[in-house]
Design a protein around this nucleic acid. Sequence first.
DNA 1: TCTCTTTAATACTGTCGCGTATGGATACGG
DNA 2: CCGTATCCATACGCGACAGTATTAAAGAGA
Lengths: 207, 207
Amino acid sequence: MIRHRIFRLTNPSIRWRILLPVVNESSRLSAQDWARAALKAIADGGLAAVAVEPLARTLGVTKGSFYAHYRNRDELITAALTEWARSHGAEGLAEFAAIADPARRLRELLTTVVQAVQPLAPSVHLSLLGDRNDPRVRDAVHQVNQARLELLARTYRELGLPPDRATSRARVAYAAILGLLHLAQTDPDAPHSAVLADEATAIFLPS
Amino acid sequence: MIRHRIFRLTNPSIRWRILLPVVNESSRLSAQDWARAALKAIADGGLAAVAVEPLARTLGVTKGSFYAHYRNRDELITAALTEWARSHGAEGLAEFAAIADPARRLRELLTTVVQAVQPLAPSVHLSLLGDRNDPRVRDAVHQVNQARLELLARTYRELGLPPDRATSRARVAYAAILGLLHLAQTDPDAPHSAVLADEATAIFLPS
DNA sequence: TCTCTTTAATACTGTCGCGTATGGATACGG
DNA sequence: CCGTATCCATACGCGACAGTATTAAAGAGA
């Protein structure tokens, strides 16, 4: 206990630099830090891994800290899911939506939409499928999928497909991207994603 | 306690018929019954839902029964995953592999491979995504995916595609099927699978 | 420097699930 | 009908986590 005090007084923020590049620069945690840690936990263990005490341990604090930011575990989960849906829904697609040429936009979408947004994003998406019975999870995933599907469908329309065909085409194309992600995460010797992105592009770009 | 005895003596197997159509006809449980219950739990809660005492409750017994069949929880999980991988790997594909005409085989595969094998199979597959860090899960999923991919690739070769293109084509096609499953499970207003199966077939059947 | 707010530590209670021990009940072969 | 193996109930100890209460420390502002 004494040692702990000395440690913190001597260098209040050293533990971050070493143990936790995730959190902010200050020596104290914010609600966002907890939400980010929760997302990281989701990415490699699903909702079940969002446990207050284990999270506190990896953050180098005790749960006394947590309850200064959230009322309970559910509130943290909701916050994390909301944050994820926000940053990966319409908002996360802004840069793609801004591309004027539909052909180029489609190519970009097909190759990077899932991977590019944030490094741990795909893992979160996949992990959430395991908890799809939770209504909050279902909403968040649906929101993200919907935003992407709409952009894809719009792109196909701009490429000349009739509306209904554009919709189902977008659905199958997006499904393929999701599935490739799925395979990549469970296959140890999966081919590099670039190769498959090319294959997918060849298939899903209307000739 | 008395009432319990009376209940069992009066009609030893009534509770099954009413509460648990999953289990066998006998009034006592087998190891397979537990494995099946475990798979059901996985289907709607992932590995975390495979908990001995809750399972015992839904089966109408206490955990004293469980430990007569398995040494511990891990053994049950392994058994359930092994059973799933067996019945959904090469073995579950036998009837498709038996189809001589590659075009018809491909069509059947694309429309029914994931849904048809067993009703709760797709849910298990998706739920396992949330636990893909567990090596046993990874193995089981990989085994099932691999069997399907190989059959698909073989089919594409028989349809005249060069081997490497057949492989990547199979991969993208299978990914699309998986992804459609993802979407169907998270989308409340998802279009009927038949429609999309048609769309998929149109895309993935080489012209 | 003093005060106020935010963040964190500590100690507690309650709950849930795992695993063990033990004895009773049931099915089945002789 | 009897004995034995299998299945099941009960009671127990244990550890992990949620949540509360209380107190202390750190940061921000006057």
